[in-house]
């Protein structure tokens, strides 16, 4: 038996924990702070002055909009593909028993365990071999490989919690397969799909490694930022964009967390 009275942490541990958290999160705050600096050629601390002009500058840069647009479109399409394929796959794996089921389950999860650089190189050489030119769809394909896993993991966990006899009960009461999916399965897995979809969107939105191998000359937002960092002028524009990216990716992750906090793991978080 563990007693709750003895679980008070010593002061030294508290300081260490606080230090660790600050170490992880202070640099992010620093990035935000530089979005408001008046110095454009190098990052100076303390900030020489505060300004909001970089927001206006960013707003008027067409390359930012192009990169943002591409990233959003890629993320939406990859997420849609992932939700459809991931759900179908999770349904098959958890609903039926067939030869090679465990193998397929492993193969689906593998892309997220594989280093992105391997996935990237593999896809690039495959595209080269098949003479497929780099396009929007090659980026989407690269992102879908790991987005499917996130949706699959979330959906499979929910399928396992959903009793199989619900499907039989629905059919027993006169519903065919489509009606059963619409009225029984979908409402029971909807929040898991939403959570998986949001995570998939966030993963796709800030993906760099696989994208560098599959994008060709196109720039998604994270790639645009990498290129921008080495240029000597208008540096704070990158920080403004970083601020926006954090907002766009953190909100879905928080949303996913709240939707699934009663029980489900947010699987595949660590890509």
């Amino acid at each position: 038996m563990r007693s709750d009275r003895n679980t008070r942490a010593p002061v030294s541990l508290k300081i260490a924990a606080a230090g660790g958290l600050l170490f992880m999160h202070l640099p992010i705050l620093l990035i935000f702070a530089y979005a408001f600096t008046t110095e454009e050629k190098s990052y100076q601390w303390p900030l020489p002055g505060l300004t909001l002009k970089w927001f206006a500058v960013t707003w008027n840069r067409p390359d930012v909009w192009q990169a943002l647009g591409l990233s959003v479109r890629v993320a939406i399409v990859s997420t849609l593909i992932a939700v459809v394929l991931g759900t179908l796959c999770a349904g098959a794996i958890s609903r039926s028993k067939f030869f090679g089921r465990e193998t397929i389950s492993l193969l689906v999860i593998l892309p997220i365990a594989l280093p992105g650089i391997i996935t990237g190189i593999a896809l690039r050489s495959a595209f080269n071999l098949a003479d497929i030119p780099y396009s929007f769809w090659t980026i989407v394909l690269g992102h879908a490989t790991f987005c499917v896993v996130v949706v699959y993991n979330n959906a499979v966990a929910r399928f396992r919690r959903t009793s199989g006899s619900l499907v039989e009960a629905s059919m027993d009461l006169g519903a065919d397969a489509f009606q059963t999916f619409r009225h029984v399965i979908l409402p029971n897995i909807a929040t898991a799909l939403l959570a998986g979809g949001m995570l998939a969107f966030a993963l796709s939105f800030d993906e760099v490694i696989v994208t560098t191998f599959t994008a060709g000359q196109q720039s998604t937002l994270p790639i645009w930022m990498l290129e921008e960092l080495v240029r000597p002028h208008q540096r704070p524009v990158t920080n403004v964009v970083a601020l926006v990216v954090v907002m766009v990716t953190v909100l879905p992750i928080l949303g996913a967390y709240y939707l699934t906090r009663d029980g489900d793991q947010i699987a595949g978080h660590g890509k």
Partner: peptide, 10 residues
């Protein structure tokens, strides 16, 4: 129609 052992209510 069936009454299931675990009731299987939605």
């Amino acid at each position: 129609n069936t009454v299931f052992q675990d009731y299987a209510l939605f």
